[in-house]
Amino acid sequence: MNILIVEDDLDTAAFIEKGLLQHGELVKHVASAQEGILVASSTEFDVIIFDRLLPNMDGLDAVKVLRASGILTPIIILTALGDTVDRVDGLNAGADDYLVKPFDFSELYARLKALTRRKPISKVLLSLSLGDLVLERTSRKVIRAGRQIELNTKEYQILEFLMQTPGQLVTKTMLLEKVWGFSFDPKTSLVQTHVSRLRNKIDKPFDLELIKTVRGCGYIISDE
């Protein structure tokens, strides 16, 4: 991926850059909103990481400028302001995702991956499949190795979300946001409990385990 980081805090920028370089991504870092707008308008990136609190200009205003000038590159906002209202403001300004500082690098990376994978075509896919697992979106049927599996609403939503980005990390926070619509962390094993039940239905009766746990981070669905 070719990624632009707009962040005035050099430590945070270095931390993100190092992580991305380790994953073999291409990174360009600028420290001001004006530079960010300039670079984003002249070069094509796969995703832009925009800090919210920048000197001289609010990151949200910069995002509005970019969107107004027709730049459709996915943008993730980083912020120290963590409340839902701020989050809604961020999304209304045209950002695609919103991450509260401090964050785990794996959380940021998982979100970047999800953003770049979110091609419009995946939205209209009527079925998602991975190995011998098929998820039919119209009938909400889940079939593995020819056997239909009964899932409750939450289990189905978790599986659908995982299958949209196979091989990519999906964090607990991402599931809470996408499946439950929570912007807060309920502290318990809510996500773990539901993923564990999903696993019992999807994986336990079969030889190959599709849903893998990345300790302390989240889950990956993959048939490798």
Partner: peptide, 18 residues
């Protein structure tokens, strides 16, 4: 009201019970 806040209201009470 706000769905997110009402969800948190109930979650916090259920977490408390748990």
């Amino acid at each position: 009201g706000e769905t997110d806040l009402l969800n948190q209201l109930l979650c916090n009470l259920l977490e408390n019970a748990l």
